[in-house]
Design a binder for these strands. Sequence first.
DNA 1: ATGGCCTGCAACGCAGGA
Length: 257
Amino acid sequence: MKIATWNVNSLKARLPHLLRWLATARPDIVALQETKTQDAVFPVAEILSAGYEAAFSGQKTYNGVATLSRRQLEIIDRELPAYEDPQRRMLATRHGPLRVVNVYVPNGASLDSDKYRYKLDWLARLRDYMGGLLQAGDPLILLGDFNIAPEDRDVHDPQAWSGQVLVSEPERARFRELEALGLRDCLRAVDSRPGIYSWWDYRAAAYRRNLGLRIDLILADGDSTSRCRNCFVDVAPRKWERPSDHAPVIAELDLPS
DNA sequence: ATGGCCTGCAACGCAGGA
């Protein structure tokens, strides 16, 4: 089973890239973030023609998540329970026994902003939600754009980034709380090297110079992690014309697809 | 790395991203 995450930075702008990538990468399941697309105009037909069913939770201009699957899927939740939030950042789906939680974690803007407080609150809610899901015991994947580089080896210049949003200690502590539940970072289960990134700034030729961050992650429950055969960033679409600033991350799990 | 870009919206600059 091949499962992927990709922040496409507008589904409308990136639909040709998505279709091209689906045709070659052929993931069984892919979680998309920043679709910036209202549900009423989601490109269901194009996605279906590519061989995928789609579940989506979108809004105009900002945010928005969608989960595509080559096989049938059903929606479990479109938001974190009991959390009043107009921003569409979460979609939980079931694929047979497998449950998939697709997240677009708030960016946080800067440490002194209300948005940073919102980010920390949101992550606490996500932790509680995942804790509940883990009780059930079925295979569980949490993936998406976490807007957190978990460790310094996930940052091209830790000194320059030190203390900033995306790497600051309070948000990293929230990430470790997710790990403490028993969720494991699939990429780190198979590859301990520094310098592996999933996002590069559009400015300053950052991709060419590999000035990036690893903030797009695939986490799996313990049993599923032990079945993680491979996990890697697929940098190919980042080299295409008018790319998303994020590249897809793919995990190959020894789970029935 | 202290800066350069991109997207959507409805403008003809802004908010937001990371």
